[in-house]
Design a protein around this nucleic acid. Structure first.
Length: 573
RNA sequence: CGGGGCGUAGCGCAGUCUGGUUAGCGCGCCUGCCUUGGGAGCAGGAGGUCGGAGGUUCGAAUCCUCUCGCCCCGACCA
């Protein structure tokens, strides 16, 4: 492709609308343009990168035994009513009425449609397992779209759905998808982790999120430095500490702690460690109060609490509610004699002779012990993991880092097949619901995530497998016949070698071409300029790392081919 | 939906508080000269219903009312 003919409107300055780096760079590099909030035009370069991701996804999905199809974007309301999600989904589902007053919606996801398709066409266990996917533009009317392609309303997604005859089969499919996803993101050249995630409302005991690691990521992920353990904060566990043995229980005592409400203040005043204090937090779970006990240096993980209580909503009570529920101002609450349901983080059960609030203003209790002084109704892992914790699998050091969710795989079970009465006949002729799984990849988001992960102050640094072009060839002097002839020859040679090359043939000064090349971030930059006329050399500069190699004109194309092949092998499985 | 901010040329902005020539500046764009290894220089030029509607006024980018759109924080979320 020739730059002079390409729709590639690079910008020297960042449009005010962009906040995050991928959004800024995609606008400046001429990849995208906004049409409306959360809705973008993909320009040729942006689309090329998206297509690269799509192709990798297709290859790996096909290899894993999945089949590609394409489902409608407009979906009838009655299917959604049948699954019950017409009511449940909320305003994120964009609904509208057609000219015949039929209610419809724009598909944010396709469980209903695919299940309907399968129930109408698959009737026997002999046809299973079946794994279907599509790559399509999705629409979700997000409350607040932001960050460019990272959280748009319209976005490109690969969504896949599997149908198995049994739980066991579904698990095998899940494992296959897990494996395929690892291959996909590896082949995209991304640094990522598959993390254990809470499966949320969709069901199933767990799911895996595929997180592209980037400091600017929206989500926090916990990874083990020694082994493969990784989880998001909602799910992350830590190795249980062991309770000290043979500690003699000391007599309970009340002490005065005037004005000391915060953990730190109480600990300083009493000269104890927060690790020896238990804090009591009042939560409201579906309208009912519950007291949550945690070690002084720990924090609540509300999703864990929600799961334990089986609640739809949990939130911290405010000071007034807390006082109404307990009759004690916040800061002096404790479990001893508290007339509320008490749940304790399991680390609390490892403690002895600890300090708590006395349920009386300006007083705390010391030498409190579980069993003797109070008994929690339930005990579970309820807290946020932190960097002091050890890996639950290997005891290694845990690290908290940031990530961008680009893929998520779920076990759906029979939720949808039952709701939509999608069944098949098993070996014994018994009508059985399909056991389903669903597997998403945010394709457009993956490109944005790649940029969040790989950039510098000059622009994008694309991983080779998803770069819009592999080589950017700069003709540094279009007025010089020798240089231009050499650039044109090289351009043809590279194309003939099957290398994807963008020739900057614009009548611009070298500085402009260098700046644009850095901005766009194509991995290999080839410069045809003075060094050719003076020394007969062509320079190859790698965008990542900036290493520049001078080679003779004749060997340039072949050399590039080698460099590309070698770089690609780093992204192979 | 709550809180905050913005809307003036393709992009970035000034001008608005305190109404008053022909609405400016930088970048980009067009023409010519010149220059050609990190966003050059000179000269000339095109481009604006100041987001929209209504109002106040002799006079509105500027004041008032309504409205549309965009961005950020929060609630929410594969």
């Amino acid at each position: 492709m020739r730059f002079s003919q390409l729709l590639l409107p690079t910008l020297k300055e960042t449009p005010a609308e962009a906040e995050v780096v991928s959004h800024k760079l995609m606008l400046r590099a001429g990849f995208i343009r906004k049409l409306a909030s959360g809705i973008y035009c993909y320009l040729p370069l942006g689309l090329k990168s998206i297509r690269k991701v799509e192709q990798i996804v297709q290859e790996e999905m096909n290899n894993a035994g999945a089949q590609e199809l394409l489902l409608p974007m407009v979906q009838p309301a009655d299917l959604w009513q049948e699954s019950g999600r017409w009511k449940k989904y909320g305003p994120e589902l964009l609904r509208f009425t057609d000219r015949h007053q039929r209610e419809s919606c724009l598909g944010p996801t396709h469980e209903e449609v695919i299940t309907d398709l399968v129930r109408k066409n698959i009737h026997s266990y002999r046809s299973l397992p079946l794994n279907l996917y599509q790559i399509q533009t999705k629409f979700r009317d997000e409350i607040r779209p932001r960050f460019g392609l990272m959280r748009g309303r319209e976005f490109i997604m690969k969504d896949g759905y599997s149908f198995d005859a049994s739980q066991k089969g579904a698990e095998a499919t899940y494992d296959k998808m897990n494996h395929a996803y690892h291959r996909i993101f590896k082949r995209c050249g991304l640094r990522f982790r598959a993390v254990e995630a809470d499966s949320g409302t969709i069901g199933g005991s767990f799911s895996h999120e595929f997180m592209v690691l980037a400091d600017t990521g929206e989500d926090t992920v916990v990874i083990c430095k020694q082994c493969s353990y990784a989880a998001n904060m909602e799910k992350a566990r830590a190795m249980e500490t062991t309770a000290p043995q043979d500690v003699k229980e000391l007599p309970l005592a009340k002490v005065e702690t005037p004005g000391k409400r915060k953990v730190q203040a109480v600990c300083e005043f009493l000269d104890i460690s927060p690790k020896n204090l238990v804090k009591t937090l009042i939560y409201v779970a579906d309208g009912k109060p519950v007291a949550v006990l945690l070690r002084g240096d720990h924090a609540v993980q509300e999703v864990k609490l929600q799961n334990l209580l089986g609640a739809n909503e949990v939130r911290l009570a405010d000071d007034k509610e807390t006082f109404d529920f307990t009759g004690t101002p916040t800061g002096y609450l404790g479990p001893v004699g508290l007339p509320l349901k008490i749940v304790a983080d399991r680390e609390v059960t490892k403690m002895t002779n600890f300090t708590v609030g006395a349920n009386e203003k300006n007083h705390h209790l010391i030498n409190v012990n579980i069993g003797r002084d109070f008994t929690p109704a339930q005990t579970a892992d309820l807290r946020m993991v932190n960097e002091e914790d050890r890996c639950p699998l290997c005891g290694g050091q845990l690290e908290l880092t940031r990530g961008i969710e680009v893929g998520h795989i779920f076990k759906l079970g029979t939720t949808y097949s039952e709701a939509l009465k999608a069944t098949f006949l098993d070996e014994r002729g018994k009508e059985t619901p399909f056991v389903m799984g669903c597997y998403g990849i945010g394709v457009s988001r993956a490109v944005a995530a790649a940029i969040e992960q790989n950039h510098d102050e000059d622009g994008i640094i694309f991983p080779l497998p998803i770069a819009p072009f592999q080589v950017m060839l700069l003709n540094l002097s279009t007025k010089d016949a020798e240089i231009t002839a050499a650039a044109e020859t090289l351009y043809e040679e590279l194309k003939n070698l099957g290398i994807e090359v963008l020739l900057d043939d614009r009548d611009e000064r070298p500085g402009i071409k260098f700046k644009d090349a850095d901005l766009i971030g194509i991995p290999f930059r080839v410069m045809v300029g003075n060094s050719l006329t003076k020394e007969g050399k062509i320079e190859i500069k790698e965008r990542a790392g900036g290493l520049t190699t001078a080679v003779s004109f004749g060997e340039t194309a072949e050399r590039l081919k080698q460099m590309i092949e070698s770089a690609m092998t780093n992204c192979q499985i």
